[in-house]
């Protein structure tokens, strides 16, 4: 009798929350998003992100998609160029930034960035190639400069402190700056 009662509770709880989820999914995200005009002639033809992004690795912020994982796992295969002679040049090399005040040090992974971007998107503006010469400041990032050009606008938002500030200074024994290049 007791296991039956517990199973029933599980079922009721699960159904209640599933119902809520389905109700949310049934709402048209474009109706009250503050962007789209429901009177627009093509309003109903536009693809909804709920449909396009379903099945991608989930995230809790931004588009709710782990784009770097989606690309690495082969769930998407976005084009690399439109000009024939340009290429994606993947560089697997981390930079570790100190001078982060009370916060953890920052690990910048070139690999995830170069899988999407061109070197010229970041170098030499806003980031000079030489370590510690660009004058990166968190206040400037929050104003949309440096990392803030993309993070907080299209890449994961600036509220995700620990995704960059990921290295505990107390236990860090290596050298700051450019780390060795990893060969695939």
């Amino acid at each position: 009798m007791k296991p039956l009662f517990l199973a029933l509770l599980w079922l009721i709880g699960g159904l209640l929350f599933l119902h809520r989820g389905v109700a949310v999914a049934a709402e048209d995200v474009f109706v009250n998003d503050g962007l789209h005009d429901p009177q627009g002639p093509s309003f109903h033809e536009l693809q909804r992100p709920t449909e396009a992004l379903a099945g991608f690795p989930p995230d809790t912020v931004g588009n709710k998609v782990r784009w770097v994982n989606a690309l690495r796992d082969g769930l998407i295969n976005p084009r690399t160029n439109i000009v024939p002679e340009t290429k994606i040049q993947v560089l697997d090399m981390d930079i570790i930034f100190g001078n982060t005040g009370d916060n953890a040090f920052v690990r910048f992974p070139h690999r995830a960035h170069t899988e999407w971007l061109d070197c010229a998107n970041c170098h030499p503006d806003p980031f000079k190639e030489k370590f510690n010469t660009s004058g990166i400041k968190m206040s400037a990032i929050l104003e949309g400069k440096f990392c803030g050009k993309c993070h907080g606008a299209v890449a994961f938002p600036l509220t995700e402190c620990a995704r960059c500030h990921s290295i505990k200074p107390d236990s860090f024994r290596g050298q700051l700056g450019a780390q060795s290049v990893k060969k695939p």
Binding site: I76, L117, N121
Partner: peptide, 18 residues
């Protein structure tokens, strides 16, 4: 919509090539 385009193109296509 950035989300629609980045399924099909890497950032570099629009922000470097174009």
């Amino acid at each position: 919509p950035h989300w629609f385009h980045r399924i099909r193109f890497r950032c570099k296509v629009c922000h470097a090539d174009i």
